[in-house]
């Protein structure tokens, strides 16, 4: 699928990132999207510590928390960083996330390229209350 077929400039990498984040969070077994070190540092306002530069900014893609998305030649590429529930098989969760994201991208009219997933933590789901 090319950019011409896609409604002109209607789909941004930011939109794809939001869509991928939502799809991931709706997948059973995903506990959360992981925070980047920059997010943590800015949250803590540790002025003394210098955040590392975010390579995504230099590449022109869009990073929202730990979701990175880029549209290139009408094809969207996504990278997600997630934490999974120890009660679920992490690779099955990863496959399910990839499928949901792929489906979501296809619904926008943009082609789905590589959807890379990093599982940064496998944890017990925190008990409510």
């Amino acid at each position: 699928m090319t950019e011409e077929v896609t409604p002109a400039a209607a789909i941004t990498s930011q939109f794809i990132a939001s869509l991928a984040a939502r799809a991931a969070l709706e997948t059973p077994g995903v506990l959360r999207l992981e925070s980047t070190l920059n997010d943590v540092l800015s949250r803590l306002r540790l002025a003394a510590m210098e955040p590392t530069p975010d390579p995504a900014n230099e590449l022109g893609g869009c990073r929202r928390d730990s979701v990175w998305a880029e549209i290139n030649g009408g094809i969207a590429h996504v990278h997600l960083e997630i934490a999974t529930d120890i009660a679920h098989r992490a690779l099955a969760v990863s496959d399910a996330v990839r499928e949901r994201v792929r489906q979501g991208i296809c619904n926008t009219g943009v082609g789905a390229g590589s959807i890379d997933i990093s599982i940064l933590a496998i944890e017990n789901q925190p008990t409510q209350g």
């Binding site: 996504v78 934490a83 999974t84 120890i86 992490a90 690779l91 990863s94 496959d95 990839r98 792929r102 789905a112 590589s114 959807i115 890379d116 997933i117 990093s118 599982i119 940064l120 933590a121 496998i122 944890e123």
Partner: peptide, 21 residues
């Protein structure tokens, strides 16, 4: 980060720390 799975639709990597957990 350890690349545990290659896939046509993308790769999956898992942090060593998550696996150690």
């Amino acid at each position: 980060l350890l690349a545990v799975q290659d896939h046509d639709g993308g790769t999956t990597e898992i942090s060593e720390q998550a696996l150690s957990t």
